[in-house]
Amino acid sequence: MNETNCAALRTDALGRAFGRTWALRACDLEIPAGSVVLLAGPNGAGKSTLLHLAAGLLTPTTGHAQVLGRTPGTRDARARTALVAQDKPLHPGLTVAEQLRAGRELNSRWDQNAALAVLRTADIPPGTRVGRLSPGLRTRVALATALGRRPDLLLLDEPLADLDPPARHQVLGLLMADNAERGTTIVFSSHILHEAEQICDQVVLLRQGRVRLAGPAQPLCTAHTAVTGRTDRAGHLPAALTALPVVESSITGRQFTALVRGPVPPEEPWLTRVPSLEELLLAHLHPTATTDSAAAPATGRDAA
């Protein structure tokens, strides 16, 4: 049972450079097994790099990663990890049925029913060649192939971007059911933050290749305060506010709104509330958000 105590994904000072550009650096994470993790961040923040490092498809430039207590890319790790990359690398010449058969023959843990459950969310003729499918249907075949492998760690790089709303709902339902039934750890990158609120229990936010925010979703929200109040006479943020760790703020007329790390002084005449996860992520993703990484809340590991 020691395995269940292992983090699903653990990184220590993980970094990856392409030429002289750092796609990811100084990444310290610990994702508990069984969590559903939203990996958020603007384009080019390092999300895909992190997922490919976890899948063992990239090697680290610095530091190292562990998936399920193993080094990514080793046989053991590969058998228990599945990645659905953005480009959905399937064999375009194979039919859907042949693609599944390849999955069955290459994986000892293969579960045909789990794969078929995904395909049943759409009318996909098994004889169609994968290369001729629409992007949405190809996504489903890629997810079917991934879930058929019965992974303990499922890495999804913007898995739902090609799906229409009913299909997204169905596919997300399947993923959540798999998490409920098998405790599969799911790490998915997405730009659709309001949807993630219902789904994820952990968040990792990357910006410019660095972890900006990481940890359990609800405690991260309660560790911040959304503030509304009146600006000072000059129309600026009140000094009492700027003295606090403000993540992001804006002024409209005489009103300011701000997202602050931690509590605010109760004596100030401001309206305060706990931000939603979407508000929290939007504030941290805002181009003017403070980028003081030293002030970022502790990662899951430091908090544990």
């Binding site: 339902g173 959540m176 059911a177 998490n179 409920a180």
Partner: peptide
């Protein structure tokens, strides 16, 4: 079951 609920509603178990 939690599995049935999340399959239908797409929320976290």
């Amino acid at each position: 079951t939690a599995k049935d609920v999340v399959a239908a509603t797409a929320i976290n178990p």
